[in-house]
Amino acid sequence: MRFKFKVLIFQFFILFLIILVWELTSANVSIIFLAPPTQVFPLLFNIWYYADILPHISITGFEILVSFGLATSTGLSVGFMLGTWKLLRTTYEPLLAALYAVPSVVWYPLLLLFLGLDVASKIAFAYILSFFPIVLSTIQGVSQVDVVLVKAAYSMGASKLTTFYKVIIPAALPIILSGISTGLALCVTGVIVGEMLGGIRGLGVLIASAATRFETARYFVLTILVIIIAFAVNYCGKIIERLGGRGA
């Protein structure tokens, strides 16, 4: 207990140190480069400041939700298909793994060209980012299910469908859910990166434009907002992961 308390004190001390260094640096450089925390934090708690930011937050949230929904549904169905069908798995798993090794941002200029600057290209980019961990972990989870369990279910007269629902899915669940949690975190990254690299709506666009206009106070408020959103989404991912731990 005392150890934990000491750790907590040091953590707060580091946070305090960061803010102090930030304040001292900003006192010595122009506000064009760094807005002081004493100016950023009041803005952060000023409700009226969000009037024009709120629509962009909802756009970003919409992009995250749509891309995550698409990636989860297609990732799970493709993953289950490849995981249960051995020939398909040996054929397509290496191809998927190879595509996963490519730095994802390589695809983004092509997506901008195909889908334009608006929402669609961000959704597609976040989809590409989160599809691969979901599909690969589903394949891994399904193919790691103990063969004895499946054979036992068959020998007691379970149909293929029953075996799938009652044996394969529960046994593969922990690995699949951790893949989904990774995919969810990557959706946020994909949407923000996509918006910052070129777009017309969303939080990432606001961040990029605030920085290029040297509005550093606004930049910091938006950055802190993105950090809060990312933490909230990651917390949801942790909850999803914990669901599997209890099921298995």
């Binding site: 953590q11 990166v193 910052m196 938006l222 950055t223 990312a230």
Partner: peptide
């Protein structure tokens, strides 16, 4: 330190890029 490192790792790091460029 671990919560700080993991926290930095789990947010989209690209939001710091404009500040670095500045």
């Amino acid at each position: 330190l671990y919560p700080y490192i993991f926290g930095l790792y789990s947010i989209p790091r690209m939001i710091f890029l404009p500040l670095i460029v500045l």
